[in-house]
């Protein structure tokens, strides 16, 4: 453990990131610029989330990493090992035991409690980016609360598909003020963003932005009066644990069109199976 400073980053960098986090918490949904560092992993692998995690971790924390809900995929395993080696913190896969959870593209099914921190990896923090490429202009739009353009995107969805087809990174309005990209979580998870007991921190490494939602923040998904927001999921029960209320991954299991649906949250699914729940595809 002597070859690295605690949690890899040096203390000054962590202070700088903590200042950005505090500012983000003070202005929920506002994108705070920060001096993102080069991390020993490629952009797109969670450099922003890792820096935020490094800044908030303490030696007493228990750390969990999920990638698309799973604890055992490459991204999750490598980041978990990274902090095991550089910070020596305890790690877990159980959502309720963790104090800091770094996530890519999911919010755990199990409700989080006070004292927990959920750290999101964010590829593109600017919700208006694909409609307005100029950063100077999007900043102005945020500061002047000109968010009509966000609805143009939803309008386009409906005119093309008959319903709001945006199914992930679904834009939300925070405390009636800032429009925020919740990172590419499925819109199924959007209702969990609001009024959450845990602190939610968002880190975008390449784009050098941090934003945050303090506990119990009001978060509203944007929609039209005649096309209200709907949290959608695959209309199946989980094949392994039989859960009907969890977000599902669709797995292709042979080349004859066979497929099964399983919980994307592996911890939730395993806990249910351990408690005796069984789906139709369980061995």
């Amino acid at each position: 453990m002597t070859e690295y400073n605690f949690a890899y980053l040096d203390e000054q960098t962590k202070r700088m990131i903590r200042r950005a986090i505090l500012k983000g918490l003070a202005i929920p949904g506002y994108q705070v610029p920060f001096a993102s560092r080069e991390m020993p992993m490629p952009y797109g692998w969670g450099t922003g989330g890792v820096q935020v995690s490094a800044a908030v971790l303490t030696p007493r924390d228990t750390f969990k990493v999920i990638d698309q809900g799973a604890d055992d995929t490459t991204n999750a395993v490598s980041i978990r090992t990274f902090f095991q080696r550089t910070a020596g913190v305890a790690t877990t896969t159980a959502t309720s035991d963790a104090t800091v959870i770094q996530t890519r593209h999911r919010i755990p099914e199990e409700p989080l409690h006070e004292g927990q921190i959920l750290v999101y990896q964010v590829p593109i923090p600017e919700p208006l980016r694909f409609l307005e490429p100029r950063e100077s202009e999007t900043r102005k739009m945020h500061s002047l609360e000109e968010y009509g353009l966000m609805h143009v995107k939803l309008y386009e969805d409906i005119s093309r598909h008959g319903h709001i087809a945006t199914s992930y990174a679904y834009p939300v309005k925070v405390e009636g003020r800032y429009v925020m990209d919740p990172s590419p979580i499925p819109k199924f998870d959007n209702p969990k963003l609001g009024d959450m007991a845990a602190i939610q921190l968002f880190g975008a490494g390449r784009e050098q932005r941090i934003y945050a939602l303090p506990p119990y923040t009001q978060v509203v998904s944007l929609d039209f009066e005649d096309h209200p927001f709907e949290a959608s999921k695959a209309d199946h029960p989980c094949g392994m644990c039989g859960a009907t209320d969890s977000y599902l991954d669709e797995l292709i299991i042979d080349d004859l069109g066979g497929r099964m649906f399983v919980c994307s949250d592996t911890d939730y699914c395993e806990a249910r199976q351990a408690a005796g729940h069984k789906g139709k595809d369980a061995a």
Partner: peptide
Amino acid sequence: LRMGVSAGGNVGERLMAVGERHYGDIR
């Protein structure tokens, strides 16, 4: 114009910018 947005979206943008939130009316 916004070249990547449909004609209807282009016309509707100003309406949405002043707070119109009913898809049917905008269209």
